[in-house]
Simulated scan of single mutants.
Amino acid sequence: MRIRATVAAVTGALALTALAVPAAQAAGSSAPSRADYRTDATKAFAASHSAGSGITAFSTAADTTDGPDVTFSNLKIASAIKVGTTNMVATTVTYTMTHGADVDITSDDFATGPYIYKGTFDSPSNAALGDEAATCTATSSTTANCKGDIDIRPAEGDLVNADAGTWSAGALAITYSNQGETDQGSLGTTKVQRYSKLTVNAGPEPVYKGKTVTSTGKLSRANWEDNEYHGYTVQPVKLQFRKAGTSTYTTIKTVNSDSYGNVKATATATYDGYWRFSFAGTTTTPAVSAAGDYVDVK
């Protein structure tokens, strides 16, 4: 689920669709479809804006105007979310919710869930939530431990390439009876990264001792705008070798990928073993190592 561009009233409403699953439904009654979540939450959120409440999906650090009396803390999220070109990626988030004595978190009228956003809290360029509300377990009359997912679908246009990098995390709660919404950002950070791939082919096979082994491969990463993989250009890539019968790779040299993401490196054949390329990663792209290619030395 996403918010693209400005996170204005209506798009903010779409972001809340994932939370339109009452807590009671998690206990056993059948939940509506994902489209129903979107429709119901959009209507509730848009109604609160048309009523002049002034609440937006990401308005203040802890906006409780017309929303449930809740605050959030202890949020934990993965350090990185690696997103490819087609498959939905789900990331579990946990957090503590503290609420007023008058807030019934088991009511059909109440739902809560985590979200992540790119950019500033007041004006995020994009955001993502889960398809369903978080599940919460009461730890006292006014606190609960909650767990929910962030769901990202690259094939449905949830991301553009500029979204790669550091995102902030938060949590929100809504009540349906008055279309109230409370949210709190800056509770943590994660990296949303363009999934990477790296290949290697070493040869000749076999090779005579003292002769040259040439390794070729390609470093590529997901493009979220055309849903293909393209070469990651001008990036440092290590050529590594593992002697047969051992478990540790040693770096032989570092080369750069070319303007197409292709990688080529040469080394002297000394022992039977495995050759691979390894990329350390960047903020926008995760680290990756190719599977070792075995070369027999005569």
Rank of each mutant, 00 (worst) to 15 (best):
M1H: 08
R4F: 01
A5P: 01
V10M: 02
V10T: 13
V10D: 01
V10P: 02
G12Y: 02
T17G: 12
A18Y: 12
A20K: 14
A20Y: 10
V21I: 10
V21D: 06
A23G: 06
G28L: 12
D36E: 11
Y37E: 03
Y37R: 15
A41I: 03
A41W: 04
A46S: 11
A51T: 00
S53H: 00
T56R: 13
T56Q: 01
T60W: 07
F72N: 01
I77L: 14
A80P: 04
K82Y: 01
T86F: 11
M88S: 07
T91P: 02
T92Y: 02
T94I: 06
T96W: 07
H99Q: 05
G100Y: 04
D104T: 05
T106S: 12
T106N: 11
D109C: 02
F110Y: 14
T120S: 15
D122V: 11
S125A: 05
A127E: 04
A128V: 13
D131Q: 13
A134N: 04
T135V: 15
A138C: 03
N145H: 09
D151M: 03
D151S: 12
R153D: 02
D158C: 00
N161I: 08
N161L: 12
A162P: 05
D163Y: 08
A164N: 11
A164V: 05
A164R: 15
T166S: 11
W167P: 06
W167M: 06
W167T: 02
A169H: 08
G170T: 08
L172S: 06
A173K: 09
S177T: 10
N178A: 07
N178E: 00
Q179L: 00
E181L: 00
E181W: 00
E181C: 00
Y195R: 15
Y195H: 10
K209S: 09
K211I: 01
T212H: 11
G217R: 04
S220Q: 09
N227L: 08
E228M: 04
G231P: 06
T233N: 14
V234F: 14
Q235K: 15
Q240M: 07
K243S: 09
T251H: 03
V255C: 04
G261I: 08
N262M: 01
N262S: 13
N262I: 05
A265W: 08
T270C: 08
T270Q: 14
Y271E: 09
G273L: 13
S278N: 08
S278I: 03
S278T: 11
F279G: 04
A280N: 13
T285E: 05
T285Y: 13
T285D: 09
A287Q: 11
S289Q: 14
A291W: 04
A291H: 01
G292N: 06
